[in-house]
Design a binder for these strands. Sequence first.
DNA 1: CTAGAAGTTCAAGCTGACTTTAGGTCAAGC
DNA 2: GCTTGACCTAAAGTCAGCTTGAACTTCTAG
Lengths: 141, 141
Amino acid sequence: MKIGELAGRTGLNASAIRYYEQVGLLAAPHRASGQRRYADDAVHRVRLICFASEMGFTLGEIKIFLGGLRDDAPVGPRWKKLAERKIVEVKRTIERSVRLKSLLEHLLRCHCASLAICVERLSLSENLKRIRSGKVVKGKI
Amino acid sequence: MKIGELAGRTGLNASAIRYYEQVGLLAAPHRASGQRRYADDAVHRVRLICFASEMGFTLGEIKIFLGGLRDDAPVGPRWKKLAERKIVEVKRTIERSVRLKSLLEHLLRCHCASLAICVERLSLSENLKRIRSGKVVKGKI
DNA sequence: CTAGAAGTTCAAGCTGACTTTAGGTCAAGC
DNA sequence: GCTTGACCTAAAGTCAGCTTGAACTTCTAG
């Protein structure tokens, strides 16, 4: 399979696949006259990477946990450790988002004379403090 | 108040405040011998910006909605429109995160022989499709 | 045989929200 | 008067995860 087909079958861009190879997420496949030729299981591997990426793992993390790990290897303790850390992160995201949502809904309904008053009324500064103390990196899942 | 004090009182870095001024979020204050001197209400304005930022609005959005808007102006229809759009986004984030969390929790508990099998068993490909079709930008709130 | 689609490399560019650096000016305390 | 720390500007650097561009080669259909 050439890179274009792999791209088509995984929904990625060919350049993304080359990039994954470049950063060590994907082993360099064998080549026919300079062009990459992938075995069928590459599709699976790439999908696994996509999956982990969708799960919120960074490529760096995925690299660590896929390093030397074959797709048919058991779910190891390292994976589990990372999953544990991620669960904490995701929980924080959920809490934060729920709070955010209720604040936004208030903003929609409210009859406050000004943004400033609205913010005060909600004692948002307190919310803000809580959000901040959570040290949730803005926008990060 | 000099920039350092404003920074201290808002929890921001002085360079971030200069940056906000640069991108038009903050009006240029009057100067004493070249140095910025802020009135007390600047603290409030900066906190409002932080608040919106924490709420997941981009600086570009905040700029639009603060453009010509005084802190004591009523919460206008433009704010509300943006809030509506944001609520949709935040809802998606919540759904996605909840799904993510349960997947991760499964990963912790599971006895699947391999990641591949584990992923199959959860019919994650289906989840993946759903996640993707939501067109949620990865990692974005 | 030839056009053009698809492959290659390497380097640079993009987004967002800042931070850092370099090189200078100003203010306050001793 | 001198030192030290806070301030100034402009430009470049940072992070992730790619994408794009330039310049070139290889494959495939007609």
